[in-house]
Amino acid sequence: MLLYGTAIASRLMLGTAQYPSPAVLAEAFRRSAAGIATVSVRREAGGDRAGAAFWDLIRDLDVTLLPNTAGCHSVREAVTTAHMARELFDTPWIKLEVIGHADTLQPDPFGLVEAARILTDEGFKVFPYTTEDVVLADRLLQAGCEVLMPWGAPIGTGLGLTNIYGLRTLRAQFPDVPMVVDAGLGLPSQAAMAMELGYDAVLLNTAVAKAGDPATMAAGFARAVEAGRLAYEADPMEPRDMAAPSTPVIGRAFLT
């Protein structure tokens, strides 16, 4: 899988928030073999490097880091946070979140496009957290994004893929754009489904971090992601509805 020209071996990405401890987090990464870790900057930074001790632990995971703008509610906040992230982690990659609704944490589509344009113009490699909306996806690509991160469901809900039709449409409309289902996954089966739909990867956090045994859940997700991807690559059979009546065969001269 190529993301902005960088080959990433694993199709599972994990967030780094809400784990019982950094040690549990590290174990979850080990068991999942996740290739990318997202890390939030805004609240931890506190305007300086106050979160440095935690970030050092994340760096020790030896995975590719994708800083995010979680918690940003405006274009300006998101752009400022992206600048901070670039400096802190020495990477042009940024997972762009512009939150439009404080309760559901839905993306603000208008602010997202604006911030994406500003950041790509500045040389950032933007991973926008978006909805499954095809028109919005098109605008983000026009703004210079080369990867899209549509949600499965609102952040932290664990509801899975709430609009499969929409996700299928999005995938079909942009078959060559790397796309990662991000947010809303609660169970490995949901991750497998996203992969079966042809998504390139999934990103999750709460489902693992808030499980009773995060490391075991991470292992479960890793297998589901692999299973879903294999199914997609294997070109699955078309389901057949044997319950629908058709011409009975036995006892008929069907070869004539």
């Binding site: 609240r43 106050a50 001790a53 935690f54």
Partner: peptide
Amino acid sequence: QIESDDRRRRVR
């Protein structure tokens, strides 16, 4: 519970 050794009290 925030991963930071910042000691300032935040509005949020």
